[in-house]
Design a protein around this nucleic acid. Structure first.
Lengths: 134, 134
DNA sequence: AGGTAATTAGAGTAAAATTGTCTTAAATTT
DNA sequence: AAATTTAAGACAATTTTACTCTAATTACCT
């Protein structure tokens, strides 16, 4: 699975948030979208850290979009929420048990790199505006 | 991660097997590529079940390609090894906890479907021949 | 025909990633 | 000051991935 449930929640949240004039709290979002509150809070925090959302503390606080939806890419959303970009296959984390001792003499490395580039390009080319209807 | 270690092993194995005139046993492959033998055996079994490899039992047995490398697609390899095609995100397995109660009124479903189609097309368009050098 | 080299099948285990919870602290508004 | 809301971090549950083991079966080879 290229993306996780956290990213699904993020996208649904962003769609909800963008339709509101006022900040939306984590609890309100959790109720509206039926997403576990604490889990969702973590996701929103990550989006705020990566400058996709603005978070406002205190009463009447909540989350607001920091940019226009045409200026937020899927790539950035996934990277923010999952802590790293969407990966086809990350062999670098298996360096110790790699049959080829690294990508130098790996038969499939060129394919993997190429595939990854296509995914990256696609995610970079798509904005929130592109994927959200209306 | 779109694909798993099993698919990495499968691709490396297929590259090794295609270079041999004779059947390659699971143990020999395991030694040559430094892949856990029992795990590899399962992977080879799956490739055999899906008619990508021919398996020959008994002494001097092992695995041989069933088709020419130009006729084996990445799509089929991944599906065979992982038991299902490579998925961007499979929300169908979360039907009970879906915020939208299914894809009908899901905001991001069109994007997901579209993205998935691109992945499928890419994997269908690539053969073993395309990704293996020489 | 018998021995052996191999795959097949299936249950089971271990480790890692994902998903989710809880509690406490910090900030903001009223 | 009180109420509300995010922030942070540790922790627990669940699921997936990665891998193992044992026993059975099949087929080659002498």
């Amino acid at each position: 699975m290229l993306i996780t449930r956290a990213t699904e929640y993020a996208l649904l949240s962003l769609d909800y948030i963008r339709k509101s004039e006022y900040p939306i709290g984590a609890e309100q979002l959790s109720d509206a979208l039926n997403i576990p509150k604490s889990f969702l809070a973590k996701i929103l925090q990550n989006l705020a850290k990566k400058e996709i959302l603005i978070s406002k503390k205190g009463a009447k606080g909540g989350f607001v979009l920091q940019k226009e939806i045409k200026d937020v890419t899927l790539f950035d959303i996934v990277a923010a929420v999952e802590g790293r970009p969407a990966m086809v296959f990350d062999c670098t984390q298996y360096t110790d048990t790699c049959p080829n001792n690294g990508p130098k003499n790996c038969t499939i490395s060129p394919f993997l790199v190429n595939f990854q580039k296509k995914i990256d390009a696609l995610l970079h080319s798509l904005s929130l505006e592109d994927i959200l209807s209306e």
